[in-house]
Design a protein around this nucleic acid. Sequence first.
DNA 1: TTGTATGCGTTATCAT
DNA 2: ATGATAACGCATACAA
Lengths: 336, 336
Amino acid sequence: MKRDRVTLTDVAAIARVDRAVVSRVINKDPTLNIRPETRERVLAAIEQLGYRPNVAARSLRTSRAHMFGLFIPDFANPVYAEIIKGAEAEAADQGSVLVTGSATRAGLGEYMDRLGQGRIDGLLLAGAPDEAGLAGQLDRAGIPWIMLNHRGRTVRRYVILDDERAAALAVEHLVRLGHRRVAHLAGPSGADTATRRSAGYSAAMRAAGLPEGPIVAAGYTPAGGAAGMARLLAAGERPTAVFVANVASAIGAMQAVRSAGLEIPRHVSIVAVHDLDLAGYLSPALTTVRMPLAELGRRGVTLLSVLKPDETVAEVLDGPIELIPRSSTAPPPDRS
Amino acid sequence: MKRDRVTLTDVAAIARVDRAVVSRVINKDPTLNIRPETRERVLAAIEQLGYRPNVAARSLRTSRAHMFGLFIPDFANPVYAEIIKGAEAEAADQGSVLVTGSATRAGLGEYMDRLGQGRIDGLLLAGAPDEAGLAGQLDRAGIPWIMLNHRGRTVRRYVILDDERAAALAVEHLVRLGHRRVAHLAGPSGADTATRRSAGYSAAMRAAGLPEGPIVAAGYTPAGGAAGMARLLAAGERPTAVFVANVASAIGAMQAVRSAGLEIPRHVSIVAVHDLDLAGYLSPALTTVRMPLAELGRRGVTLLSVLKPDETVAEVLDGPIELIPRSSTAPPPDRS
DNA sequence: TTGTATGCGTTATCAT
DNA sequence: ATGATAACGCATACAA
């Protein structure tokens, strides 16, 4: 078993050629004019030795890492799993690899330190990392970066999803079923996605000629959803349907409905954003709006590799958004 | 804004010192005898320029990447999310970073090609990648590797969890509640974890002096769990409790119970392996056995960095395993 | 059609 | 207590 790693020089020796030739064969240099026979010898030698280029040397020479970074808040959140999948696929298409880090352990700053200089060609920031001094730090390091699913307050370097349209789809679904009192459990007031979903809700209600039902801030957690739904149910005129800002919150909301002795969807219909696997496993199965999360990740990597250093980007991803009807929505109880 | 990246030479120039000195200061070379005043100058220069070592150059020189790889089947599976968290934390403790790849897009072979040579110091293999020629390929590349949660058929290079004990905990919980007819929905016959959980079930039943209830292979999917549970319920003497090999399968099993017009836990108790967040959101909330998944990831990285090249490892991780009681288990219906 | 020379940024050995 | 130098493996401009 070969212990020493094989280098270009080894391959060149076996192929009776210079290292430069091997290098140009590997990199498919179009200006290389080589006779087929020689190329064969090179390829054979590569195969025989099982040669694979040393990325450190290559990267040092070309100052390209062929690696993209993706920083997320938490691996356990299935929303990010989808984004990762897309980003990984696009990176692979470019012959690059994706290194993902999470804020579970420490902040972005410490992560960047561990990464060092020159390890990645660009960084995707999903969720909402602490923005303070972020742009500066990354720019000083000369690393292209883009925020995913979150608009920066100061910098225009992001791609987001069309949350307004997603919210509209949800509301329209409820309206089509006959609901007229549609309430909204909103996400955390700080979150950019939450703001956009709420805006979409309001716009859709207006478009349908309906009065905005109560809007209650519920956060993105089951506990928040439960508390929010409890308030909604205690209100004077109980809504017959609720648009919830995300699935986690909807889970809590559903529990609150049950606790109140009511049934879903018989007394209250519920629809939430993001079509996670989990949604299908709840009982009743949760009606959701599917967002192109994988496409978001994919687009991020693409932009990273085509963007000029100082170019800005403020893009609303144009991907398929669709309503996935399940068992948590139905026509309202007729009490007329 | 500085555009050119700053190198050791720049720092040395500002500090009026040689590059070698800066390097040794950074790496805390104990043999370096430097006067405090000089060290201060160096540190100040580093700070002033915002210098960060170039990993490519360093890695080329030292042939250490300060990066570990983790290959998993799918990011969407929360089990791997936990493993990733642990592995990332341990890597961080070592000043390294973790690059995770998934089989979503392609196999391990193609992933290794994209990784190239010298990018990682070691590779963790979670789940069960195609084992054919795997060991050979990695060994030839000189990359230390370890399988996580899966015993290799031929090679002894793995760390697994104590699935037998987990199964025993689950069964003991049911027996303590008074159940005597405890069935088992097993995982896929090929999966190593499934085998161990089944063995644990059998041993625990024997230890309790109870006859092995029916054992049905159900796979690790909701569909499999539903089908398996349907068979269990159709059998002559219906079990009062079922130990299910994983949560996904349990979800299907729960649906099958409801479809049969029965209630959980009134007619059938259910307990499954792995305490995923999801378990708490089901209704009824699922009783589970928590396994130290994060510890598994952490241990993997540790072993990777201490193992000698040709050393083998066959370890059952000694971490906390505990039963998390929720609402899916209760005493059996008394029909005596 | 193929070979030569140089430098990427760092670490480590040896001088001074 | 600090400086000079070589080498890691590769890509590329240029020479032959």
